[in-house]
Amino acid sequence: MGNQKLYKGSLQTIILKLLAQNDKMYGYEITQKVKELTKGELKITEGALYPALHKLEAEGLLDVEVAKVGNRLRKYYKLTENGTKETANRLSEMQEFLNTMQQLVNPKFSLE
């Protein structure tokens, strides 16, 4: 498993990206999807996931839908209109960050 601290600041962006691809998802589904996509490299703890989801909901980026599943209720999260716009912004910010890190970690040879 990689260094989880490196992923910590990207949790909200990861959630937004997943919701942009999956219409609506519930908490446990998000943790499992991340585990599956990263082949177990990144494990989101529930203690970090739910506070992040609640923050995004409070910021108006996520909408909530509650549905009955079997003998219990399930809370689904989906992107709001603002959430869709914010996802694009955050992904572009993350791309810029990755490019900068790439330049720092692996700078190209230059004669200057």
Partner: peptide, 11 residues
């Protein structure tokens, strides 16, 4: 509580 119950139930 509803969200936590669902989480534990899924596991």
């Amino acid at each position: 509580k509803a969200e936590l119950v669902d989480h534990f139930a899924s596991i």
